[in-house]
Design a protein around this nucleic acid. Structure first.
Lengths: 307, 307
DNA sequence: ATTCTTTATTGTCAAAATGACAATAATTAA
DNA sequence: TTAATTATTGTCATTTTGACAATAAAGAAT
């Protein structure tokens, strides 16, 4: 009655056909003839009593129930592969390829400098760092650890807080002597603003006035997603800029910019828990290479940037 | 390199051994000799490179990593079984999204009124009705059942005849008293015609005279793809109209129009089998939602419109 | 419309994996 | 020490899967 069939193999074939959209391409991935996939998937369909794929000689696409099934089993299969990897790498040393995904700015400023040291510590780990501000789903992508602003996407993923990401206002000394130093949020109307454009839009200045969030943005001098161009303008005294502390810090240290102390405080998001998080799959934490990277990054970042 | 092993079966054996604490008891659960479990689990351990179980002749218990592995895969296996169950139940009960494509006129007049009842009968089927006179290819489009005039496009599609679609001549009483009632096809030359324009052109009046098809159209008063406008004109007595019976019927019932009995009979197509067909794909596995819709529509239509 | 090309399926046979049954080894209880 | 239970192993039969050629079908090109 029950299946006389290697269902797992059939599922791997099925998933590959869905992802490549072709029996031939999927067969190449396993180095077997397409007929094998055709047979195994036909058996799978037979055991389920359903057509999963709509085939024609040119195009293969999913049936309604096939799509549903694919969504479920593709996740299940990667989970299983993860479990296998955990066992295989049990009591093994950190090694292999490690994919890290990070926001561009954070990657360039903070992550990559750390990774040089990581490389020395774990020479058997080959790093594959991908910098992008697009959020990836982590789990469907082949990413071991990811660094993102915001919150954890779902509960299957662990989000380890790395550092705050509050945007702070800053300006150069020349600007402040010329325009005066604002102390109150309402005074900002008479100042000039340099606005950083995130992937989700420009970052307006917000202020919690008596429990009401209000936009207290100063008139704009420039808006850009090019952070350095804006910082340059700020240093030249063209306006007030709001950026995360970890970007501002070197300029503050050199005295090129100084933080503004505004009351009530202004931010760019209504959520105070806005921060940078390190994301990884819970089950993969026991894979030595992943554990090594997670532990290394969190301890180093928290030590060097304790805010 | 990769496992030449039915891992899923091995996992089921493994889980059973863990849960029963015994190879023999677990083997009984599958009705196979204990040696099978022993072999499969040994293969599994070999492919993972770790011992999962600590065996002795009296007790079987888990190693540390075996426990970790068990915790993960037991959950994964039940997830997979659930997915299988979802697909199997999809085959058992009419459910899911059902896309119906129909000609506009037929859809508005006949199909949609029926579908309200269908909705009550099968609340788990979500209908998505698309009305259009463009022929869709059915199969390339995501259409489960389609209603079209004409014939079956190819043999992978089943065409179930719903009702005749012969165009019949009709006119109002006022027209006939004024212009006379034509009995012979040749007399039509002295009458007036109202012509319905199908997507493939206006529908000329044809007649089989001694084995020769001839155009016996009356001089045109109006040509349009707007059926109601033409019917209106016919009722006002402006000419003879040819339309399918299922459109004419309500006007005949109310006495606003009456059929003409012309010899030899005139039609708009040379093929006498011209009818309205319900089309659906021949599938290897029966999809209940499709079967439900096909059966429902054919029985209802044939009962209510038995011509 | 017709031909050409690509691609999935099917037939047939070989190879591999799994199951069955008996025999063996090992551990624990008596 | 002995007896009994139980996992493992040897050997062979069965079943499943893979390989390769041939076929059929559908889209693309002309």
């Amino acid at each position: 009655m029950e299946n006389r069939l290697d269902q797992l193999k059939a599922l791997k074939y099925f998933v590959a056909v869905v992802e490549t959209g072709s029996f031939t391409k999927a067969a190449a991935r396993f180095s077997v003839p397409p007929s094998s996939l055709s047979r195994r998937i036909a058996d799978l369909e037979s055991s389920l009593g359903s057509n999963l794929l709509k085939r024609s000689t040119r195009v293969v696409n999913l049936t309604e129930i096939g799509r549903e099934y694919y969504n479920q089993v593709s996740k299940t299969i990667t989970e299983l592969e993860n479990s296998n990897e955990v066992v295989r790498s049990y009591q093994a040393k950190p090694m292999g390829q490690l994919r890290i995904s990070s926001m561009v700015g954070f990657g360039e400023k903070i992550l990559l400098p750390l990774l040089d040291e990581f490389n020395n510590l774990y020479p058997d780990i080959i790093l594959d760092v991908h910098l992008s501000d697009q959020l990836s789903t982590l789990g469907h992508d082949d990413v071991d650890v990811a660094i993102r602003g915001g919150y954890a996407p779902n509960e299957r993923v662990i989000a380890q807080r790395l550092m705050g990401n509050q945007f702070l206002p800053a300006a150069s000394a020349s600007y402040l002597t010329r325009m005066g130093t604002p102390r109150n949020a309402m005074q900002l109307q008479d100042h000039k603003g340099l606005y950083y454009r995130t992937p989700t839009g420009p970052t307006a200045w917000l202020c919690d006035l008596d429990g009401q969030w209000q936009d207290v943005s100063a008139p704009a001098v420039a808006i850009s997603n090019g952070g350095y161009w804006l910082i340059d303008k700020a240093i030249k005294g063209e306006g007030i800029i709001m950026l995360p502390r970890w970007i501002l810090q070197p300029y503050l240290d050199r005295g090129e910019l100084q933080l503004l102390d505004i009351h009530p405080p202004i931010t760019t998001t209504q959520n105070p828990a806005f921060a940078i998080y390190l994301l990884y799959q819970k089950q993969r934490y026991h894979v030595p290479k992943v554990k090594a990277a997670v532990d290394f990054i969190t301890t180093r970042v928290k030590h060097q940037y304790p805010y």
